[in-house]
Measured scan of single mutants.
Amino acid sequence: HNLTITQGKLFFHYNPKLCLSEIHKMEEVSGTKGRQERNDIALKTNGDQASCENELLKFSYIRTSFDKILLRWEPYWPPDFRDLLGFMLFYKEAPYQNVTEFDGQDACGSNSWTVVDIDPPLRSNDPKSQNHPGWLMRGLKPWTQYAIFVKTLVTFSDERRTYGAKSDIIYVQTDATNPSVPLDPISVSNSSSQIILKWKPPSDPNGNITHYLVFWERQAEDSELFELDYCLKGLKLPSRTWSPPFESEDSQKHNQSEYEDSAGECCSCPKTDSQILKELEESSFRKTFEDYLHNVVFVPRKTSSGTGAEDPRPSRKRRSLGDVGNVTVAVPTVAAFPNTSSTSVPTSPEEHRPFEKVVNKESLVISGLRHFTGYRIELQACNQDTPEERCSVAAYVSARTMPEAKADDIVGPVTHEIFENNVVHLMWQEPKEPNGLIVLYEVSYRRYGDEELHLCVSRKHFALERGCRLRGLSPGNYSVRIRATSLAGNGSWTEPTYFYVTDYLDVPSNIA
């Protein structure tokens, strides 16, 4: 807008934040220059609390790290170098490059900038070799853009010569660093050979998330399962459950009422301010606690030095998902009996873990797994792929695949051998790939016309006998059925096997 004052003059007093240069501009645009008398524009009460600059400061050096910015700028000295009290560095987070010096300023003089007072450097006698002032900004957020400017702080001049310097606002972004852990990993099994893994992005990506790394490792069953005799009275049979499938998407929606109208769909109840505040506090606490764990609990591995020492970490090797089922080394339970199943799973520490690289999504279907087997899954978020990966501390989750139908069934015939004193040795093959492992066998036998009897055969007993022995049988026709019990439950009964026990007292003698 054009402003013209045809008559009258300007009068400025007691404006401590208004620089004289701005008042002189007002004289020019209003056409009143030359009308004012000496005392109409006070030299001592206008701009006496402001830094009124008329020179431009330029930054000469900028260096960044993930949490620091090192700045240096060209030296500046007023005509009387004693008038320079120091520099004021202003900075704040700036997602967009549209910041002005006066953003967030209120009537009390406060604003949204963080201000650092910096002492002037030592003055050199040689004007050509003056030290460049600077400042190291610490405690910054990774991968965050900051708006920065600097200006001088000078003393009051009796001659009211307006001098000083100020830089333009520059924008500097800190470097990326390792992201925080992925949030809320959930693993479920939808079949006997697959596990579905879902997660949420890290709360602090500290860069642009480029991919996720998912490692999985087959877990050995508890050692007590191999040692305890679950045929003993009072000892509860062990059981394991597989990871249940995901709930429906509708039930997972946030901010939804727990109660549904019987007449149909209901609208979600909005969260109160107290609920939102509580969630923010919980989120802040979780982030602080995660940072504490990362800094205190997890110790970084030592990389190899120039002395030739090897990095103890196993090298990563990509495998196809079809090879995942046989990740671990199978060892027989008892070496003397080769027909026992290889369900003991000690994992070799030198073995390469299978892994998958996930790009542009937060889910993965891990296939080719062994049925009813526990897996430990390790999830890392990465925001750099080359020249070397920059990934987060791992988040861990466990899951067990679903049982395989008929995996616990005894394959092959049940054979028998009759000894003296009416002892019958029953023999059968253990299931080759049971659900988890076989903890015991149930032997059901009966003599024709009598009630059915049951015998429990422990895992250890089966390994020693290759089956079991029935003792003290009365003469007669017998039928026997056997079924295995694994961590997933009972298998199917075998087809009945028949044998006849004679009275050993009636056996004919070869003595003449």
Score class of each variant (00 low, 15 high):
residue 399 A to Y: 06
residue 356 E to N: 13
residue 352 H to Q: 11
residue 492 S to E: 11
residue 215 F to P: 01
residue 400 R to I: 07
residue 487 L to N: 06
residue 455 L to D: 05
residue 277 L to P: 08
residue 507 V to L: 02
residue 220 A to V: 07
residue 486 S to E: 00
residue 329 V to P: 12
residue 305 S to Q: 11
residue 388 E to G: 14
residue 240 R to L: 10
residue 247 E to K: 13
residue 343 T to I: 07
residue 340 T to N: 11
residue 343 T to F: 09
residue 288 T to R: 05
residue 371 H to R: 13
residue 339 N to S: 10
residue 357 K to Y: 06
residue 478 Y to P: 00
residue 388 E to W: 05
residue 406 K to V: 12
residue 426 L to R: 01
residue 323 D to K: 02
residue 210 T to R: 02
residue 482 I to M: 02
residue 251 S to Q: 14
residue 235 L to C: 07
residue 509 S to M: 07
residue 477 N to I: 05
residue 220 A to E: 15
residue 247 E to H: 09
residue 349 P to D: 15
residue 505 L to K: 09
residue 241 T to M: 07
residue 450 D to Q: 13
residue 499 F to L: 09
residue 479 S to Q: 10
residue 280 L to N: 10
residue 208 N to P: 10
residue 503 D to A: 04
residue 356 E to R: 11
residue 221 E to P: 07
residue 440 L to N: 15
residue 385 D to R: 05
residue 383 N to F: 04
residue 291 D to V: 08
residue 483 R to K: 11
residue 272 T to M: 11
residue 247 E to P: 10
residue 397 V to D: 03
residue 477 N to M: 05
residue 407 A to F: 11
residue 218 R to S: 12
residue 286 R to F: 13
residue 434 P to Q: 09
residue 362 E to T: 10
residue 255 N to P: 14
residue 241 T to P: 06
residue 453 L to P: 03
residue 418 I to N: 12
residue 376 R to P: 01
residue 335 A to H: 10
residue 460 K to M: 09
residue 432 K to L: 13
residue 263 A to S: 12
residue 472 G to K: 14
residue 341 S to N: 14
residue 314 P to E: 14
residue 296 V to N: 11
residue 360 N to A: 10
residue 385 D to N: 06
residue 322 G to K: 06
residue 266 C to K: 10
residue 485 T to K: 06
residue 503 D to G: 07
residue 318 R to E: 11
residue 420 E to S: 04
residue 256 Q to A: 14
residue 430 E to L: 03
residue 412 G to I: 03
residue 205 P to E: 02
residue 438 I to M: 03
residue 342 S to W: 03
residue 216 W to R: 10
residue 423 V to D: 15
residue 231 C to T: 05
residue 255 N to E: 07
residue 390 R to G: 14
residue 241 T to F: 15
residue 391 C to S: 01
residue 227 E to R: 08
residue 309 A to Y: 04
residue 301 R to F: 02
residue 324 V to E: 03
residue 247 E to L: 11
residue 299 V to R: 14
residue 221 E to D: 06
residue 203 S to E: 13
residue 443 V to L: 09
residue 204 D to R: 00
residue 204 D to L: 12
residue 439 V to Y: 14
residue 502 T to F: 04
residue 509 S to H: 01
residue 445 Y to V: 06
residue 293 L to A: 14
residue 225 L to H: 06
residue 222 D to A: 12
residue 382 C to I: 01
residue 385 D to W: 07
residue 399 A to F: 06
residue 448 Y to P: 13
residue 447 R to F: 02
residue 264 G to I: 12
residue 287 K to V: 14
residue 395 A to K: 13
residue 414 V to D: 00
residue 231 C to M: 03
residue 421 N to W: 09
residue 427 M to G: 13
residue 481 R to P: 00
residue 243 S to Y: 06
residue 232 L to Y: 10
residue 314 P to F: 15
residue 375 Y to K: 00
residue 476 G to N: 00
residue 315 S to C: 11
residue 480 V to P: 01
residue 354 P to M: 13
residue 458 S to V: 02
residue 232 L to P: 10
residue 242 W to I: 04
residue 434 P to S: 10
residue 318 R to H: 08
residue 271 K to I: 11
residue 341 S to G: 08
residue 252 Q to I: 08
residue 219 Q to K: 07
residue 427 M to Y: 01
residue 297 V to E: 09
residue 510 N to Q: 08
residue 472 G to W: 09
residue 488 A to Y: 15
residue 371 H to W: 08
residue 272 T to Q: 08
residue 498 Y to C: 11
residue 312 P to G: 14
residue 364 L to P: 00
residue 505 L to P: 12
residue 380 Q to G: 06
residue 455 L to N: 04
residue 478 Y to M: 00
residue 394 A to W: 13
residue 468 C to T: 01
residue 314 P to Y: 14
residue 395 A to Y: 06
residue 205 P to W: 03
residue 325 G to I: 12
residue 241 T to C: 11
residue 393 V to H: 13
residue 354 P to K: 06
residue 311 D to H: 14
residue 380 Q to A: 07
residue 303 T to D: 08
residue 373 T to K: 14
residue 480 V to G: 02
residue 263 A to C: 09
residue 343 T to A: 15
residue 504 Y to N: 05
residue 235 L to H: 11
residue 401 T to K: 00
residue 432 K to A: 11
residue 273 D to V: 13
residue 379 L to F: 05
residue 229 D to C: 04
residue 341 S to F: 09
residue 316 R to W: 14
residue 215 F to T: 04
residue 348 S to N: 14
residue 324 V to N: 09
